[in-house]
Design a protein around this nucleic acid. Structure first.
Lengths: 345, 345
DNA sequence: AGATTTCTGATTTACGTACATCAGAAATTC
DNA sequence: GAATTTCTGATGTACGTAAATCAGAAATCT
């Protein structure tokens, strides 16, 4: 039978109250007594029953998620995952509020962070934009003792507690190596379509991709980066132009969202089999395109994992606990048509 | 504030005892009363506090894991994950026993299953061998009302409740597509090294690989399958012979364990850069080989995920609850040198 | 030595659910 | 209408921890 606080009290020859003081390092215990209790704890191998402790505490964690608006599937999926977390909030003792802000709008994001600060939550998760005013807003939250986790896109210069997202340089490198190797024995330039160079994750992916391409396919020409602002219509326009202008185009790396536009452009031009296309994020559209062969590979970050990780970290930081880094690392998933998960994602 | 059983009792105008009877469908409640209570439950949006419920029940789940012996890293890693689960058993209310059996020994496995049955646990997780006597032993467990989950390698003909492992046909296909595309523009045959054709997962991987190779690289010649019994020394011998015999060998797919031998053979022959090698399971050795370029790609199943999933499913089945299929699906991870996780795995 | 401060113990209530017991009310049967 | 049988209520205990209160013991200071 698993030892309880009562067993420790008996073993150490002290009262329950003293054990409680030691366990929750409250003041009022002499050094010698504290040692006695701690020895009892280790010899009995006591571990606190978290369920019972939470029950007794009946603590709740008010959390705020700040998410960008816009109709790209990944961000909507992220919002869906946050909603799913809301449903679990009863079980997880969280109270989640969502604030929506226009995409790629640094001023709006800074304002939203201030608004979140006024609500005095235990923690805030935010899809960051890499801008000074955003850094400043995050730092103010931290000064108020509010835990902050960046989600999907990081904010390295700030005092945020944690980044719940993938290593985007590595993601870009992965795409670069795949592209380089898939195109071996084939001529022609490679194009890159981004959302915006304003967000950190896109910049990082570009950096990684360029570096890996230089290594795995040294002579390959990269066309100048195109920004489609994660908007399907805009991306379709840009890619259509690209394909028309470069008859010898060998590959396209789409490092942002708006892949519906990319897919449509390739298929309308009849170049879907010809051009090696690698994109990010598993959505119904990208999934179908991968299955049909329009896309050749897909990199993915699991939005559900990211949201759940962000919540775990925020709760831990709110309690002043350390997080286990390895457990909270979000992996880059690679999908080919052969290892697509069965369920539509 | 979240509603409790007391709130339901008040709302429905009944006593706590009646609410309890409805919630845990115990007998002794009239139809009308039951309806009243259920209406109160839905209108208040009551959800049972699982933590408190478990605390009150103080239920424990005795589980048995049957794992193969042998010194291949993946199975040892699996054992480590089971040990890690043992550590958490206090929190998760499980009591885990491990039985070790010789690898690839169907009779020993059947005996171990009988032994497990005699211990009358709530559930059994087993790395299966595809043999009639094993199927029979599993079916006997199920007849005794013991939940059974196959781990890593499935047993399709049996009445097991669930398979906690990857789709190995898809894994093989993935390897085949990568191999085919990585070798585009290069001549030479491809070799396949398996552990044993006795286990289902290896047979499935072979099937998938052959099919995908046929599609993505139609003319490519596949050498006959070699069985290394997941033993590093044996694998090294076999691969050394293979490399010596085939100067034009373009690729090797190692679908089992014992990759230390594969890596050593390639490096001793000086063919590590020349031959495209794809293997399974991320271990310190395979990880280093991927980083250095001896291996070109690595497919992985996360042993930790599999063990945790198996435990969740066994607990759920022991309580007669359904499992959410999508949540328990184990993904095939693809690693290139660029997306290796930072921590040694 | 007396007053003060600092520790420690004993005890109690609470968290939300499970489960058992017993008594009384309601419905059913004869 | 009396005797059953079947429901329902009231009440209490338990799970393991948190947290508060109060009283007494020990140490420290004057």
């Amino acid at each position: 039978m698993r030892p309880t606080v009562h067993d420790i009290a008996a073993k150490a020859g002290v009262s329950l109250a003293t054990v409680d003081r030691v366990l929750n390092n409250r003041p009022g215990v002499r050094g010698v007594t504290r040692d006695k209790v701690e020895r009892a704890i280790t010899t009995l191998g006591y571990v606190r029953d978290v369920a019972a402790a939470n029950l007794a505490k009946s603590r709740i964690y008010p959390l705020i998620f700040i998410l960008p608006e816009g109709d790209n599937t990944f961000m909507r999926g992220l919002a869906v995952e946050v909603e799913a977390a809301k449903v679990r909030s009863a079980v997880e003792r969280t109270a989640i509020t969502v604030l929506s802000v226009p995409a790629f709008d640094r001023a709006a994001l800074a304002t939203a962070l201030e608004k979140a600060r006024a609500l005095a939550p235990a923690g805030v998760a935010v899809v960051a934009i890499d801008a000074l005013e955003v850094v400043a807003a995050v730092d103010r939250l931290r000064e108020d003792g509010i835990a902050v986790v960046t989600l999907v896109s990081d904010l390295p210069g700030s005092s945020r507690d944690h980044f719940a997202g993938v290593d985007n340089i590595a993601a870009g490198r992965t795409a670069g190596t795949l592209m380089g190797r898939f195109l071996s024995g084939r001529e022609g330039p490679v194009a890159i379509v981004a959302g915006s160079m304003l967000v950190r994750d896109h910049r990082d992916r570009l950096e990684g991709f360029s570096a890996a391409m230089a290594e795995s396919a040294p002579g390959r020409r990269l066309l100048p980066v195109i920004e489609g602002h994660d908007d399907p219509a805009e991306v379709e326009n840009l890619v259509s132009g690209l394909v028309a202008d470069h008859a010898d185009l060998a590959g396209i790396y789409s490092l942002g969202a708006g892949n519906r536009g990319l897919i449509a452009a390739l298929e309308k031009a009849g170049r879907q089999a010809d051009i090696c296309a690698i994109a990010h994020e598993l959505t119904p559209h990208s999934r179908a395109a991968l299955a049909s062969g329009t896309l050749d590979a897909l990199l993915n970050q699991d939005a559900g994992h990211e949201v759940r990780s962000a919540i775990r970290v925020l709760k831990a930081r709110a309690d002043g606990l350390a997080v286990i880094g390895a457990q909270e690392r979000i992996r880059i998933e690679i999908f080919l048509r052969d290892n697509l998960p069965v369920e539509p994602a």
